[in-house]
Design a protein around this nucleic acid. Structure first.
Length: 868
RNA sequence: GGGCGGUUAGCUCAGUUGGUAGAGCGCCUCGUUUACACCGAGGUGGUCGCGGGUUCGAGUCCUGCACCGCCCACCA
C-alpha cells in the first residue's frame, strides 16, 4: 500500500495483525544477547492459567508493554518476561467442576489421575490468555515463557521450602485457620473478605453445677456451644466477683465447664460472659491456650457436626444451629434473641462463609522476613507509585503475622516434607534425599501443597533461573518495574519483597506501580459473575487494540479507579483516524525527504518549538509513569497544533514548488517524532505509518528506532508567543464573522486593523479568510470591531447585519470589560495588595488594567460611532 | 473502629511552587475550502461538595462536616 491507496478511514483490523508477526519474526521481543546497553526488565504478573482477558488485564499488560517499548526507544536492552501461574485453588476448582459434570469426582479417581487430568486441561485451554495478550500487541519475550510448575521453577520452590525449614522460618503448628468448607482447604487471612450480615444474638443460660443460679452468655453461633470448654468473664466485672472458678453445666450436653477470668471479654457487650470454644474461634483459641483448656473439634472438613451418639451428629452447621436453638428453647435455656449485625469472613475463592477450624498446618515466620524488608522500603530502595501505597505496605509489614502456607489440595507444589516412622519431618527434594538425610526409612510424604503465593513470590528471580547463577539472573536481576493492582500488594508484592531480600539478598524490583481499577461507566465494578464485565476482545475486534490501549492508558495516572466507556474508545478511535489522515496528507505532499532547511519561517519555528516542548513533557511523563499526561501532550500537539494550525497555515506553501521544501521537512520531522513518541501506547498504527514515511535513514521498524533527538535550538519562546498571538487575532476575527452570521467559507472584503501584527498579516488574512488587511480605521462604512492582543480589528459590515444586534453585542462586551476592570482596580487600589504581593504580579496586573481600560474606551467610541 | 482516595462545565476528567478556571465528549450555530464528517470554524455552559480559618489574594494551604469509593481491624 502506498500513500495514494491509503483509504480515508483507518482500519485497525487490517493493520494490527500483520505487525505482531513481523516484530516477532524480526526477533524484536528478545533482548540483545550481547552489548553493554543498560538493562530494563519486567517479569510480568503471571496470569492464572484459568484466566481469560478482562479489562484489568487490558490495562495492566499494555501498560507494561508501553514501558518496555518506551525503554527500547530510549536505548535500553529490554526484557519483558511473560509467564503463567498454576493457580492452585482456581484451577483445581475448574477441573473439579468438570469431573462433577462427568459424574466423577477427584476423590474417586485419586491424586495421581487428578493431577494428570489438570495437566491435560492446561494443555487444551490454559493458554487462552497468552494469545489474547498478543492481540493486545504486547511485545513479550515468549522464548522465555515461564510457568510456576515448570520443572526448574518447581525445583526452586522446593529448595526455598527446604532452606526455610532448615532455618526455622517454616514450621508446623496447630492453629485455628480459615477453613473453606466448599474447597475443603485452609486459606490465608488475605484470601478472605470481611462482610457484615444481619443475624441474631442468642442469650443462653448456663446454670451453675451446684444449683446456685446461672450465667447468661451471648453468642451469634449457638451451635458451637457443643464444643464449649469454659465461660469467660472479665476480671474487673463486678457481676461475677466471687463466682470465677465455679462450674457451670453446659446445656444439652450436660458437661461441667469452668467459669474462668480472662481479659478477652468486654464487660460492655452482651452479658459480659463469653462462651469459649477454642477449636472453632480464633479468639477463643487464644483464651484456651492461656488457660490450658481442652480443644475438642466438632466440625469436619465440610463444616458438619461430628458428635457421635448425639442427635446433632452429621448435621450441617446451619441445620445444627436451628436444632440447638430449638432444644435450648425447649430446655428453658434460651433467654432471648436479639437482632445483631454479624461480621463474617467470606472465602474469596468460593464465596463460602469461612469456618475457623483448629488444625495442623505449615506456617512461614513472616515477622522475621518482614524485618529485613522494612528498612529498605523506608530508605527508598523500592519506590511505590503512587507513593501513598508505601504507607499501606509498611503498615501491613509492621503488623504482619504468620502465614499459613499449606493447602489441602492436589494441584500445586507438594510440600517436600517426608516423615520417618516416628513422625519426624525431613525436608528434602525427594524421598531418596530424605532417607539419606535422615538415615531412616521414610514412610510417607506430606499430603498438602503450597499456597500459590508461595511460588509466585519467587517470580522475579526464579523466572530468571534462580537458584542457579544463570546469565539471565546476572543481567536482569534485580528487575526494574513491577506493575500490579492494589488488591495484591500484601498478597504478592510483600511476598516477593520478603523472598527477594531473603533469598537473593537484593530487592526484586526498583519501582512498584499500582494501576487503577477499571470500572464500568456507571462506576460499578466489572464482574464476570454478575455479567457486568466488558470483554476486551470484543473491543479489539471492532476498533482495534491501539484504540483500546489508548482508552485505558490515557486515563492512567495516580488515580484509584478509571471508568471504561464506549464514548472514550470512540475518542481513541477518532484520534487514531486523525493520525492516519494527517499522515496521509503529508504523504500526499511529500514524495521524498528534503534536505534540512537553513532558513525557517516563524510558523515553522513555532511548530518545532512546540515539538521540543512536547518531547520534553512526554519524556517526563513516561519516566514518571504518568501516561495520562503523555497522552494529553501528544494529543494536543498532534491535533490542535500540528493539524489545526500548522497544516492549515502551510497548505499554500506546500502547493508552491518554490516554497514547499521547508514545510515538507518540518512536517515529516514532526510526524516522525510524533509517531515514535506515540508508539509505546499505540504500537500498530505508528508502525504502519512509519513504514510509509519517505525517510532517508530509517530503521526496519519504528519499534527498533531511537527516541527523537530534539536540538535545544528548536526551543523558541519568541516564535511561540508571536505565532500564538497571530492565532489569537485570527480566532477573534473568526469570532467576529460568526457573530454577525457570515459564512465561514465566504471571503470578507477587507479587514481594517490598528496595531502591530508582528509579521502575521499573511497568516491572519488567509486563516480568517479576509481578502485584504488594511491598516487604519475604516472611514466610510460601519464596522463591527474588537480589540485583542493590542490590535483593534474592524470588520466593515454595512448592509450585512442587524445594527441593533451589533449594538447589543458591543454593550455586552463593554459590560464584561468593565466588570473585569473593576475587579482588577479594586485589587490595585488596595494598599495591602500593592505592598505585599510580588512586584511582578503587581506589574502584570497593572498592565492588564491599562489594557482593559484602553479596550473599554475603544468600545465606547465604537458604540458612539454606531449610534451616531 | 482506624487509614487512604474522590467530590471542578450536562458527562468523563486535567489543573504544576496560591496570582482573573481548562480539555474531550454532549448541546447550539455555520460549513461539500487540495488529509480526515471517525472532519473543520464559532459558540453556550462552572458561587470548583458544605462550613470555618490563614493570606493582599484560595480550586490550590490548614481545620471541621457531608456524601461516594477502597483498604485494614480478634468484639462474642
Amino acid at each position: 500500500m502506498n500513500e495514494f491507496t491509503m483509504p480515508t478511514q483507518y482500519s485497525a483490523l487490517e493493520t494490527e495483525g500483520k505487525w505482531y508477526a513481523a516484530w516477532e519474526a524480526a526477533g524484536l521481543f528478545k533482548p540483545d544477547e550481547s552489548g553493554s546497553k543498560p538493562i530494563y526488565c519486567i517479569t510480568i504478573p503471571p496470569p492464572n492459567i484459568t484466566g481469560s482477558l478482562h479489562m484489568g488485564h487490558a490495562l495492566c499488560y499494555p501498560l507494561q508493554d508501553t514501558l518496555g517499548r518506551y525503554q527500547r526507544l530510549q536505548g535500553k536492552n529490554v526484557l519483558i518476561l511473560p509467564g503463567q501461574d498454576h493457580a492452585g485453588i482456581a484451577t483445581q476448582s475448574v477441573v473439579d467442576k468438570q469431573l462433577k459434570k462427568e459424574g466423577k469426582s477427584a476423590a474417586a479417581i485419586g491424586r495421581e489421575k487428578f493431577v494428570e487430568r489438570v495437566w491435560e486441561w492446561r494443555k487444551e485451554s490454559g493458554d487462552t490468555i497468552l494469545h489474547q495478550l498478543r492481540s493486545l500487541g504486547c511485545a513479550f519475550d515468549w522464548s522465555r515463557l515461564r510457568f510456576t510448575l515448570d520443572e526448574e521453577y518447581a525445583d526452586a520452590v522446593l529448595k526455598v521450602f527446604i532452606n526455610w525449614f532448615d532455618r526455622g522460618l517454616i514450621f508446623r503448628g496447630k492453629r485455628v485457620v480459615n477453613w473453606d468448607p466448599i474447597l475443603q482447604t485452609s486459606v490465608s487471612d488475605i484470601e478472605t473478605e470481611r462482610k457484615t450480615v444481619r443475624g441474631k444474638l442468642y442469650y443462653v443460660r448456663y446454670p451453675f453445677a451446684d444449683g446456685s443460679g446461672d450465667v447468661v452468655i451471648a453468642t451469634t453461633r449457638p451451635e458451637t456451644m457443643l464444643a464449649d470448654v469454659a465461660v469467660a468473664v472479665h476480671p474487673s466485672d463486678a457481676r461475677y466477683t466471687g463466682l470465677v472458678g465455679k462450674y457451670l453445666i453446659l446445656p444439652l450436653l450436660n458437661r461441667d465447664i469452668p467459669l474462668i477470668s480472662d481479659i478477652y471479654p468486654d464487660p460492655a457487650f452482651g452479658s459480659g460472659a463469653v462462651k469459649i470454644t477454642p477449636a472453632h474461634d480464633a479468639n477463643d483459641y487464644q483464651v484456651g491456650i492461656r488457660h490450658g483448656l481442652p480443644m475438642p473439634t466438632i466440625l469436619d472438613e465440610r463444616a458438619r457436626i461430628i458428635l457421635e451418639g448425639t442427635k446433632y451428629h452429621s448435621l450441617d452447621r446451619l441445620e445444627a444451629r436451628k436444632q440447638v436453638v430449638a432444644d435450648l428453647e425447649e430446655g428453658g435455656f434460651l433467654v432471648k434473641i436479639e437482632d445483631h449485625e454479624i461480621p463474617i469472613l467470606i472465602s474469596e475463592r468460593s464465596g463460602e462463609v469461612i469456618e475457623p477450624l483448629l488444625s495442623e498446618q505449615w506456617f512461614v515466620d513472616q515477622p522475621k522476613l518482614a524485618e529485613r524488608v522494612i528498612p529498605h522500603v523506608k530508605a527508598g530502595d523500592v519506590k511505590f507509585h503512587p507513593p501513598r501505597y508505601e504507607r499501606i505496605f509498611l503498615d501491613w509489614l509492621e503488623n504482619i503475622r504468620e502465614w499459613c502456607i499449606s493447602r489441602q489440595l492436589w494441584w500445586g507444589h507438594r510440600i517436600p516434607i517426608y516423615y520417618t516412622a516416628d513422625g519426624t519431618p525431613i525436608a528434602a527434594m525427594s524421598q531418596a534425599d530424605a532417607e539419606q538425610k535422615s538415615g531412616q526409612a521414610i514412610v510417607r510424604q506430606d499430603e498438602d501443597v503450597l499456597d500459590t503465593w508461595f511460588s509466585s513470590g519467587l517470580w522475579p528471580f526464579a523466572t530468571l533461573g534462580w537458584p542457579h547463577d544463570s546469565s539471565d539472573l546476572k543481567r536482569f536481576y534485580p528487575t526494574s518495574t513491577l506493575i500490579t493492582d492494589r488488591n495484591i500488594i500484601n498478597l504478592w508484592v510483600a511476598r516477593m519483597m520478603m523472598m527477594g531480600y531473603d533469598l537473593t539478598g537484593e530487592k526484586p524490583f526498583s519501582d512498584v506501580i499500582i494501576y487503577a481499577t477499571v470500572l464500568r461507566e456507571d462506576g460499578r465494578r466489572m464482574s464476570k459473575s454478575l455479567g457486568t464485565g466488558i470483554d476486551p476482545m470484543t473491543i479489539i475486534s471492532t476498533i482495534g487494540a491501539d484504540a483500546l490501549r489508548y482508552t485505558l492508558l490515557s486515563q492512567t495516572g495516580e488515580n484509584q479507579d478509571i471508568k471504561y466507556s464506549d464514548r472514550k474508545t470512540e475518542e481513541a478511535r477518532n484520534f487514531a483516524n486523525k493520525i492516519w489522515n494527517a499522515t496521509r496528507f503529508v504523504l500526499l505532499n511529500v514524495e521524498s525527504t528534503p534536505a534540512e532547511p537553513t532558513q525557517f519561517e516563524i510558523v515553522d519555528q513555532w511548530l518545532l518549538s512546540r515539538l521540543a516542548a512536547t518531547e520534553k513533557e512526554v519524556r517526563r511523563a513516561y519516566d514518571e509513569f504518568d501516561l495520562q499526561s503523555a497522552c494529553q501532550a501528544l494529543y494536543r500537539f498532534f491535533w490542535s497544533e500540528m493539524c489545526d494550525w500548522y497544516i492549515e497555515v502551510t497548505k499554500s506553501r506546500l502547493a508552491n514548488q518554490e516554497t514547499k521544501a521547508v514545510p515538507q521537512w518540518v512536517l515529516l520531522t514532526a510526524i516522525n517524532a510524533f509517531l515514535k513518541m506515540m508508539h509505546p501506547i499505540m504500537p500498530h498504527i505508528t508502525e504502519e505509518l512509519y513504514s510509509h514515511l519517505p525517510l532517508k535513514d530509517k530503521a526496519a521498524f519504528i519499534m527498533a528506532e531511537a527516541w527523537p533527538q530534539i536540538p535545544d535550538s528548536w526551543t523558541n519562546p519568541q516564535a511561540e508567543s508571536t505565532v500564538e498571538r497571530w492565532f489569537t487575532i485570527t480566532r477573534a476575527l473568526r469570532g467576529l464573522r460568526a457573530e454577525v452570521g457570515l459564512d465561514a467559507k465566504s471571503q470578507i472584503p477587507s479587514v481594517h486593523f490598528v496595531g502591530d501584527l508582528q509579521g502575521g498579516d499573511a497568516v491572519i488574512q488567509s486563516q480568517a479568510r479576509a481578502s485584504a488587511l488594511v491598516l487604519g480605521v475604516p472611514t466610510g462604512p460601519k464596522s463591527i470591531s474588537t480589540t485583542i492582543g493590542g490590535v483593534d480589528l474592524y470588520l466593515p459590515i454595512e448592509g450585512l447585519i442587524d445594527m441593533e444586534k451589533e449594538l447589543g453585542r458591543l454593550g455586552r462586551e463593554a459590560q464584561k470589560t468593565r466588570e473585569d476592570l473593576d475587579k482588577l482596580q479594586l485589587r490595585l487600589t488596595n494598599p495591602q495588595f500593592t505592598e505585599r504581593a510580588k512586584p511582578e504580579v503587581v506589574a502584570r496586573e497593572t498592565e492588564l488594567a491599562a489594557e482593559l481600560q484602553d479596550k473599554l474606551q475603544k468600545i465606547q467610541i465604537r458604540i458612539q460611532l454606531f449610534t451616531g
